[in-house]
Design a protein around this nucleic acid. Structure first.
Length: 422
RNA sequence: GGAGAGAUGGCAGAGCUGGUUGAAUGCACCGGUCUUGAAAACCGGCAUAGCGCAAGCUAUCUAGGGUUCGAAUCCCUAUCUCUCCGCCA
């Protein structure tokens, strides 16, 4: 959610920043509503003051034996006027809140300006691309041939965009989850949590998935509960409506969860394999910190995500998303993209974002610098560490041998229990 | 799923026969007196947000509706918590 005070005090600056994200008219609309709102508040509050004053005098007048009936009648009329104006105020309030809640975050000043993904900026490439003397096979082909993946049966039981892992495939997925969690908890300093997969509407609003993107989420039949699209949602909202002490920060959590996405609007894209599913596994990292620390924290978060790819010896690159491609809640986002031989390009495997105070304002997450200080909003960050299914796919594709077998990365062998799948 | 009880300030906990109750009291916290220092004792302060140039006003006792001149207090709904029964991994 946006800081309306900032919009009031620096409208031109906000206007310019929003323009880099392709949003126009926002500031003007907010200011118009804000002025209307304040005019009504002045009006309705003076009426309420009058009513309170008169109501307070009624018991006194009664005691004096005076007839209060005419005063009550008069106040009844005032009361009706108040409720009418309160309704108008509520309409304007709702409209303003809707606008502030459905408009994307301001970009960081360090986010490159650009209109879409074509203007994202590559920061670095890490690792050697595998040299193959044969045509690389796609991961779904490798997986099905080796009996690790069964998309046909998955479709039979659940429809399209689901995966069924079998045998060593299920073991590999599980090994990856454990490997990632262990790395983050023992080496990168995260505390593991295992949150619920179903959350309430207000929780989804706290991190920015709602109200704007309701069609992207799976909604339960009670109409108020949703399957989580990422662990970021429950984990960040652990601290909803709380005031943390400075000593508690930074908070660092990692969590494995299944993630659920309706993938509305992506029909026809990535229809094969593990890349785009309604249900997938992900290990997530969430960091909550003081505002002046958040960009250092973002670098730490990125490094932690990279540590997994490095250990798995998978080639990847890091890009900074430009203003036009940065997600709704984020001020700055780095994407990690892993090399996918059958695609002949890099594919997103992690997204590490600093949301600054955008989610904190929605979820009311604050901290105090010391015991007598005024609470301030924290900054929240989240990043995948990593998308497990895509990591599975990357391992199959990058570690495939000429005979169709898969050589397991060294770091994963203790978790997987073998160094080869054939 | 059935029956009942509850949700009040950072915490604990009054009020809940509707009217100086934004809310007693205790604890915590902040400032001070005393003390070599600390503790204790004592004195004072101590919610949040909105609106207003300001004085100040308005709102908030889980949330949303309703009754009333007036609601923490009465009524309805939702959410959560607890107890008992049923069911269950």
């Amino acid at each position: 959610m946006h800081d309306i005070k900032l919009i009031r005090t620096e409208p031109d600056k906000v206007k310019a920043m929003m323009a880099t994200r392709g949003v126009t008219g926002f500031v003007e609309e907010v200011l118009t509503l804000d002025e209307k709102r304040r005019a009504i508040i002045v009006d309705v509050e003076s009426l309420k003051a009058k009513r309170n004053e008169v109501s307070k005098s009624i018991p006194q007048l009664k005691k004096e034996g005076k007839d209060v009936a005419p005063i009550m009648a008069e106040m009844k009329v005032v009361g009706e006027e108040i409720s009418e104006k309160d309704n108008t105020l509520k309409t304007i309030d709702d409209e303003l809140k809707q606008l502030l809640m459905t408009t994307q975050n301001l970009p960081s000043e360090t986010t490159p300006v650009g209109k879409d993904e074509s203007e994202n900026v590559e920061i670095k490439k890490v690792g050697e691309l595998p040299k193959m003397s044969f045509e690389p096979r796609a991961h779904w082909e490798l997986g099905e041939n080796l009996g690790l993946l069964d998309f046909e049966t998955a479709a039979k039981i659940s429809g399209s965009r689901f995966a069924l892992y079998k045998g060593k495939g299920a073991r590999l997925e599980r090994a990856l989850i454990n490997f990632m969690l262990d790395t983050h908890t023992t080496e990168n300093g995260y505390t593991e949590v295992m949150p619920p997969y179903i959350v309430k509407r207000h929780t989804m609003e706290g991190t920015g998935q709602l109200p704007k993107f309701e069609e992207d989420a799976f909604k339960l039949s009670d109409g108020d509960s949703f399957l989580i699209p990422t662990a970021e949602v429950p984990v960040t909202n652990m601290y909803r409506e709380s005031t943390l002490s400075a000593e508690e920060l930074p908070i660092a959590h990692t969590a494995y969860t299944a993630c659920f996405r309706s993938e509305a609007g992506s029909a026809g894209r990535d229809t094969r394999g593990l890349i785009r599913l309604h249900q997938f596994n992900k290990v997530e990292m969430v960091r909550i910190c003081q505002p002046n620390e958040s960009y250092n924290e973002l670098e730490k978060l990125l490094g932690d995500a990279e540590s997994i790819l490095k250990k798995l010896e998978l080639p990847y690159r890091v890009i900074t998303l430009c203003t036009g491609d940065t997600g709704f809640s984020a001020a700055k986002t780095y994407d990690l993209e892993v090399w996918m031989p059958s695609y002949g390009r890099y594919v997103e495997i992690s997204s590490c974002s600093n949301c600054e105070a955008f989610q904190a304002r929605r979820a009311e997450i604050k901290f105090k610098r010391d015991t007598s200080a005024k609470p301030e909003y924290v900054h929240t960050l989240n990043g995948s560490g990593l998308a497990v299914g895509r990591t599975f796919a990357a391992i199959l594709e990058n570690c495939q041998q000429a005979d169709g077998s898969i050589k397991i990365p060294k770091a994963l062998v203790p978790y997987f229990g073998a160094d080869l799948i054939d």
